[in-house]
């Protein structure tokens, strides 16, 4: 029982990170019908910038007050990934809008390779460590087994991750459902031509969608680096595939779907590692992707294609 609760907490934490990345996939897919395969690497770059900023702020500049450090790190890495997301859309996708469907997919993979290799060359292929920044936690339960006591721990780090995700999700849902920008995004999703006839600058709206997804990926990147303490240039690929799976599982194009999918993938991965085998934990995500695509292509919360009237 204690073991189960602990895994549940761990799964929700990991799932929060996947969920935040998945939003970027789902929003971009919603608005231009394209899988942005470079999105996982935006998360990776976010993590690297966060790590670099941490080291600069704490060891070079001597900042010690953690909340301020965290805030600066977050802002800088969001700015960077936003700029990157904007640039990629501008350079690699916008010129291809209106050409055949696979074209931007190919440039997306290209952008992903560029970014991975850039980081690999400049940062090296080995993992980069970050000393633990936030330690400690709360003990929720205590149980005993024949091997001794077993503790259910909720670390402060996990609390921060889950809370931040909840706040961001709530804010984001409000943004999309209540603000003029969110309405414009949904309008572009449903009928881009009509949106432009109503005075919406469609290109700008699409750019902003990329920027938002990238900014959330930066948050996820920061959380990842804090949680695991090590990163390398390849984390974007694995996390990207899992977040993409989450988006598909939740129903691609659906915002709550992305979050739900993220949590489910996080839970499945953690329970799989906990009860079956750690070695095959990545296989779980890939298998789910295949199964969902075959049996439930519109996902848990996705809408089947609505016919345009």
């Amino acid at each position: 029982m204690e073991y189960f609760v602990q895994q549940l907490i761990n799964g929700l934490t990991l799932g929060s990170i996947y969920g935040l990345i998945a939003i970027g996939y789902t929003m971009v897919y919603g608005i231009i019908g394209m899988i942005n395969f470079a999105h996982g690497d935006v998360f990776m770059i976010g993590a690297f910038i966060a790590l670099a900023m941490f080291l600069i702020l704490t060891t070079v500049l001597g900042f010690t007050f953690l909340p301020v450090v965290l805030l600066i790190v977050l802002i800088v890495s969001m700015l960077f990934t936003s700029a990157w997301g904007w640039t990629v859309e501008r350079l690699a996708y916008r010129p291809l809008r209106g050409s055949f469907r696979l074209a931007p997919l190919i440039t997306a993979i290209g952008m992903s390779i560029v970014l991975q290799n850039f980081v690999q060359i400049t940062q090296g292929a080995r993992v980069k460590p970050l000393p633990p920044q936030i330690q400690g936690g709360i003990t929720l339960m205590e149980g005993s087994t024949e091997n001794g006591t077993i503790l259910v721990q909720l670390s402060y780090m996990q609390i921060i991750i889950i809370l931040t995700t909840v706040v961001l999700m709530a804010g984001f849902t409000l943004l999309i459902s209540r603000t003029p920008l969110g309405r414009a995004q949904r309008a572009c999703e449903q009928d881009r031509k009509m949106a432009s006839l109503l005075g919406i600058n469609v290109d700008r709206t699409i750019s902003l969608t990329f920027v938002m997804g990238a900014a959330l990926a930066a948050v996820a990147g920061l959380m990842f680096v804090l949680l695991y303490g090590v990163i390398d240039f390849y984390i974007g690929f694995l996390a990207g595939v899992k977040a993409f799976t989450a988006a598909v599982l939740g129903g691609i194009g659906s915002l709550p779907g992305a979050m739900l999918g993220g949590l489910l993938i996080g839970l499945i991965e953690v329970f799989w590692s906990g009860y079956f085998s750690v070695e095959y934990k990545d296989v779980a995500a890939f298998s789910i992707l295949a199964i969902v695509l075959i049996f439930l292509p519109s996902g848990l919360l996705g809408q089947p294609e609505v016919e345009k009237v």
């Binding site: 949904r186 449903q190 031509k193 006839l197 345009k308």
Partner: peptide
């Protein structure tokens, strides 16, 4: 302002 051919109402709004 245009009310276009086929009306183009946003169906999910």
């Amino acid at each position: 302002a245009q009310s276009p051919e086929g009306r183009r109402i946003f169906p999910r709004m």
